[in-house]
Write a protein that binds this DNA or RNA. Sequence first.
DNA 1: CATGAATGAGCGTTCATTCAT
DNA 2: GATGAATGAACGCTCATTCAT
Lengths: 188, 188, 188, 188
Amino acid sequence: MARPKSDDKRSAIMVAAMRVIVKQGLSAPTAVIAKEAGVANGSLFTYFPTKADLFNQLYLELKLGMAAASLQEVPTNGSLREQFSKMWSNWMRWAMAEHDKRRALALLGVSDDITRETRMSAHQAMVHIAALMERSRANGPMRDAPLGLVGALMNSMAEATMDFMAQDPVNADAHSKVGFDALWRMLG
Amino acid sequence: MARPKSDDKRSAIMVAAMRVIVKQGLSAPTAVIAKEAGVANGSLFTYFPTKADLFNQLYLELKLGMAAASLQEVPTNGSLREQFSKMWSNWMRWAMAEHDKRRALALLGVSDDITRETRMSAHQAMVHIAALMERSRANGPMRDAPLGLVGALMNSMAEATMDFMAQDPVNADAHSKVGFDALWRMLG
Amino acid sequence: MARPKSDDKRSAIMVAAMRVIVKQGLSAPTAVIAKEAGVANGSLFTYFPTKADLFNQLYLELKLGMAAASLQEVPTNGSLREQFSKMWSNWMRWAMAEHDKRRALALLGVSDDITRETRMSAHQAMVHIAALMERSRANGPMRDAPLGLVGALMNSMAEATMDFMAQDPVNADAHSKVGFDALWRMLG
Amino acid sequence: MARPKSDDKRSAIMVAAMRVIVKQGLSAPTAVIAKEAGVANGSLFTYFPTKADLFNQLYLELKLGMAAASLQEVPTNGSLREQFSKMWSNWMRWAMAEHDKRRALALLGVSDDITRETRMSAHQAMVHIAALMERSRANGPMRDAPLGLVGALMNSMAEATMDFMAQDPVNADAHSKVGFDALWRMLG
DNA sequence: CATGAATGAGCGTTCATTCAT
DNA sequence: GATGAATGAACGCTCATTCAT
C-alpha cells in the first residue's frame, strides 16, 4: 500500500488543493494549498513529489468518487431505462452536492499536468457506467457507432447539463430531466 | 505618420500566439509568442496592452472564424435538416482543417483571462447558428426546454464529436455523421 | 546660437518636463513628457539627445530663472540689509508663485543625472546673490568662515523656509520674515 | 522551527542596501542588493515584502541610529549651550564616521517610496533633539516662531554643514564649529 | 524635421522545489 | 518526519532610444 506517512495529512492536502483550485485556479501556489491544509510549505512535498503529482492523484480520486456516487443504489433488476435514469440522477445530484469537487475536476481535466496514464486510470473507474451505456445503445440507432464516441457524447451532455443546473439551481431537477431525456432520445 | 501599426504584424502575433498556445499551453511566455511572430519582445505590447488582451482578442477572432466557416454556403431554401446538416458538416470540417485553431480555442475557453464581455461578444457571433438550432427544435420534444440548455447540449456534442474525429481522422466523416444523427435525434 | 529647430517645441518640452516631474517624479517616462508637450515620442530626442540632457538643461534654466527673479528690483542704493531683504523676499515670492518650478528644481537637484558641470554653471547664476551675501557677512562673525559654507547655510535656510511656507501658505509672509531674520542673525 | 529567519541576514540585506544605494542610487536593482548581501535574489523578499518596504525600514533604522548617536553622552547637568553643543558635535561626528549612512539617508529622504508613516516614526526618534532645540530658543528671538520652522531651519543647517565637512574633511572640526556657532546665533 | 512603431535590456516579484534545523 | 527559510529561474511589462516612413 503506497500510503506512507500520515493519511490524515495526505487527505487534508487533497481537500485543500480542491478548495484552493476552485477559488484560485490551477495556478494556485503550493504554498497556499499547504496553508489551507494546515501543514507547512515543504510538507506538501513529502506527500506528493511534485505539484503535478498532487494534481494527478486529486483528479483520480475525484473521478473515482464521482463514479462511485453515480452508481449508488442503481437497481440491478429494474429496466435498463430505470437503471440508466437512476445513474444519471445520481450523477447530477453529486454534481450539485459536490459543486467544488466538480469544478475542480473540470479544471483538472483540461490541465496539461494530468498525464495520459491518469486519464486512463480514471477511465477505468467509469467501466460500470460505460457498460450501462453500452447496453442502452445496443439495440438502438447507435449500435454501430464507436463506443468511445458514444461515451464521449454522453459525457459531454452530462457536463453541459451539470453546468446549466449549476447556473440555475432552482430548476435543477427539471434541467436534469431534460438532459436525461435528450440523452435517451439520442441513444434510442 | 511614421511606420503605421501593421495589420500584418498584428495578425502574425495572433497566429503565433495560437500556435504557441497549442504547443505550450496558456502559460506560454509572451517572449516565445513574440519570437514565433518574428517581432521583438516589447513589440507584442504595442499591439496588445497585456497578455490577457491578446488572449481575449484571439479568442474572439477564432470564434468568429469558426462561426463564419460554419455558415458558409448553408442553403437558405433547403429543408431545415439540410441547412442544419450543412452547418454541422462545415463546423466539423473547420475543426479538422483548423485543428490548431480549435485546440487554442478550447484552451482559451477555459482561461480565467477571457472576460465576460469577450464571451458575450463571441456568443453574438453564434446567433445564426443558434437561430438554426432554435428552429430545429421548435416542434420537437425539446420545444419547452430552456434554449440555453439546448444550445449547451448541442455545443458539447459538437465538441465531443470533433475531439473524436481528431483522434481518428481516417473515419472523420463517419464520426461526423454519427454526431449529427445523434444531435438530430435528440432534437427531435 | 545653439538653438536649432523650433524654439517653441524646445521650450514646450521643457515646460512639460517640469510639470510631469512634479506630478510623477524623475522617473516619469519621456513618452509622458512628450505627450504633455504635444510632440511625438521621438521628437523629444531631436531636441535633447538624452533624457539626462533634458534634465540638465531644465535644471539650469530653472535655476537661472530663480536667480533672475531673486534679483529683480533690488535697490542698488539702499542699505545692505534692505538689498538683502528685498532679494530674500523676491526669492520667497518666486518660490510661492512658481511652486512647480521649485518642486522640480528640488527633485532635479538630488538627481544623479545632473552633472557637476551643470551644477557649476548653475552656481554661476548665483554670483550676484553670493556677492550680496559676501558683503553681508564681511564684517560679522562669519567673516572668516569659508564662503562656500556660508552660502550653503544660506541656501539651506532658504529651502527650509520655502518648504515651510508651502505647507502653510496662509502665513507665508510671516514665515518668510522669520527665515530672513534668522539668516540675518546668523550673518550678524 | 526550521531555519529561523536570521537577524544576521536581515541586517546584511540592510547594510547591503545602504551601500548599494550610495553607489548606484535608489534605482539600484534588488538583485544587486541581494548579491551584495550574499543572499539569493528571492531571499530578499522573505525579509522584506517589497523593495519599498526595505527602503522604509532602512530609512527608519538609519534615522534612529543617527538620533541615538547624536544624544550619546549629552550632559544632563551642563548648560543648555553645552548640551546642545555636545549634541551637535555628536551629530556631525556621526555624519563623518558614517558617511555612507548619511548619503543613503539623504537619498531615501527624498524618495517617494518612504511613506508618511515612516517619516512620522522617524520624527518620533528626534523628539529629544527637538526638545533641546525647543529649550534653546525659548527665551530668544525665535520664541514666537513656529516650532516646525525652527526645527526645519536647524535641520537644514546641520545638513549643509555636514555636506561641507564631507567635501573638506581635513577641516571638518572647524566647519562643525562654524555651523554650530551660526545655529546658536540664529537661536539667539 | 516629425512621427510613432520597433527594439531589447532590464526590473520587481513569484513560486516550485530543496535543504538546514 | 515536520518545518519554513533559501534558492534562482522565469515572467509580464516598461521605457530610453533608434529608425523607417
